[in-house]
């Protein structure tokens, strides 16, 4: 008899808390940007198309519809991690099919070789190239996302992608590295709680 009662009591409690939780999840549903905007916010906006979509937003839409989150090489590990956090899914390693994570680059036009064909301007997804037909062209370095799309169309191959170097203005301190941090079970892994 007592067993019956306790089972009943437990059932009642379970039902009660279940109802409470259910109510709370409806009542306090977090409001905010639609999920696509949030995903798009995380993507690096390089607009390079390496993910197989014509730009970051289309990929964001695809992710929202269930596409894997590991197709964006410019964003690399950190973007995948953020997406995984946002969507509450397992982070995957970057899909090598779409390219590998590289240090940030900018395009530089070797200006004396530029023939002013405007092909790079047409290719640049963020309008980071200035120039006019038959005039020398130049890249606005601060706006260039390093997407690489202007390199190929150039008929005289005068566009270089150069890695962005750390300057005194952009340098910052790195974290100290205490040697005792790695515990035996973690040795060999790349680090804990990255």
């Amino acid at each position: 008899m007592i067993i019956l009662w306790s089972i009943l009591a437990l059932l009642f409690l379970a039902a009660l808390f279940g109802a409470l939780l259910g109510y709370a999840s409806v009542r306090f549903k977090p409001e905010g940007d639609p999920i696509i905007d949030q995903i798009d916010d995380i993507l690096p906006q390089t607009q390079c198309g390496q993910c197989g979509y014509p730009g970051c937003r289309p990929y964001a839409e695809a992710i929202a519809n269930g596409d894997p989150i590991n197709k964006c090489p410019p964003g690399g590990e950190s973007t995948i991690q953020e997406l995984a956090d946002l969507l509450d899914v397992e982070p995957l390693p970057l899909d090598a099919e779409h390219g590998e994570e590289k240090p940030k680059q900018v395009a530089i036009i070797r200006e004396d070789e530029c023939i002013g064909c405007t092909k790079c301007i047409q290719a640049c997804p963020v309008d980071a190239i200035l120039g006019a037909a038959k005039q020398m062209h130049t890249v606005i370095a601060s706006e260039c996302t390093g997407c690489d799309l202007c390199v190929d169309p150039c008929p005289v191959d005068c566009i270089d992608m150069v890695p962005v170097e750390t300057s005194i203005q952009t340098w910052h301190w790195q974290a100290p590295q205490p040697d005792y941090k790695l515990i035996a079970t973690d040795a060999g892994r790349s680090g804990e709680a990255a």
């Binding site: 040697d179 005792y180 790695l182 515990i183 035996a184 040795a187």
Partner: peptide, 8 residues
């Protein structure tokens, strides 16, 4: 066992 510096 945890491969930490023992004396430290």
């Amino acid at each position: 066992l945890r491969r930490r510096p023992v004396w430290f």
